[in-house]
C-alpha cells in the first residue's frame, strides 16, 4: 500500500489530430510555458516530459507530439504504442479536423480498447467567433465514446494545465484500480481511489534523460 503512494507513476501520452490544429502549441505551452515568449531551441523536442504531483502521488508524463507526421497514416500503431493517454486535438474553426478526431477515436478504441484514456480537445477558443464545431455536439460525441471533452487556447493559456492535470488524474485512477483488481492489496477504499480536486500540479521539471 505504501509503495503505490510513493512510487512515481509514468505515463505516455500521445497527441494526435489533423495538421495545424495546435498540438505543438499545447504541449509547449504546458511543458515549457513557451508559447508566447518563444525561445525554444532544442531539437530534442518531439518527446517532452513533465513531472507533477497529484495529491501526493508523483506522476511523470512523457508526451509525444506527432505534429508534422499526420500524413503517415500507416504509422498509427507506432504512434500510440504503449500509450495510457491520448489527446485528440481539433480546431474549433475547422470541421474537418473534428472528423479526423472521430477517426482516431474509432481506431484507438478498436486497437487499445478501454485501456487508454481519451481526451478530445477543441483548441483555439480564442477564435470563438469563427467556431464551426458546435460545442454541445462535440461534448455529446465525446461522452458517447467514453472520452472527455475539453476546450483550450494555447495562445491565451486557457484550459491547458487543466487538460493535462485532469488526464493525469484519470490515468492514475485507472492504474490504481487495475493494480487493485490485479492484486488483492487494497489501496484506500475499494474501487474508489479518491482524488481530491486540488490542483497540486505545478511541480514542474523537464528532464532530459528518460528512464
Amino acid at each position: 500500500m505504501a509503495g503505490a503512494q510513493n512510487r512515481t507513476s509514468s505515463f505516455k501520452i500521445v497527441l494526435l489530430g489533423e495538421g495545424c490544429v495546435g498540438k505543438t502549441s499545447l504541449v509547449l505551452r504546458y511543458v515549457e510555458d513557451k508559447f508566447n515568449d518563444k525561445h525554444y531551441s532544442t531539437l530534442q523536442a518531439s518527446f517532452l516530459t513533465k513531472k507533477l504531483n497529484i495529491n501526493g502521488s508523483r506522476v511523470s508524463l512523457a508526451i509525444w507530439d506527432t505534429a508534422g507526421q499526420e500524413r503517415f497514416h500507416a504509422l498509427g500503431p507506432i504512434y500510440y504504442r504503449d500509450s495510457q493517454g491520448a489527446i485528440l486535438v481539433y480546431d474549433i474553426t475547422d470541421e474537418d479536423s473534428f472528423e479526423k478526431v472521430k477517426m482516431w477515436v474509432k481506431e484507438l478504441r478498436k486497437m487499445l480498447g478501454n485501456a487508454v484514456q481519451l481526451c478530445i480537445v477543441g483548441n483555439k477558443i480564442d477564435k470563438e467567433k469563427e467556431r464551426h464545431v458546435a460545442a454541445a455536439a462535440a461534448e455529446e460525441y465525446a461522452k458517447s465514446v467514453g472520452a472527455k471533452h475539453y476546450h483550450s487556447s494555447a495562445k491565451l493559456n486557457k484550459g491547458v494545465e487543466e487538460l493535462f492535470v485532469d488526464l493525469s488524474k484519470r490515468m492514475l485512477q485507472k492504474k490504481l484500480s487495475s493494480d487493485e483488481s490485479g492484486s488483492d492489496r487494497a489501496v484506500g477504499g475499494r474501487g474508489s481511489v479518491v482524488i481530491a480536486d486540488d490542483s497540486a500540479a505545478p511541480a514542474t521539471q523537464k528532464k532530459g534523460g528518460c528512464c
Binding site: T24, L28, K38, H39, Y40, A45, S46, T66, A67, G68
Partner: peptide, 12 residues
C-alpha cells in the same frame, strides 16, 4: 517534418 514543425511553432 516533426522536428521542423516543432522548431517553427516553438520559435518566433
Amino acid at each position: 517534418l516533426n522536428d521542423m514543425t516543432i522548431i517553427r511553432v516553438g520559435n518566433t
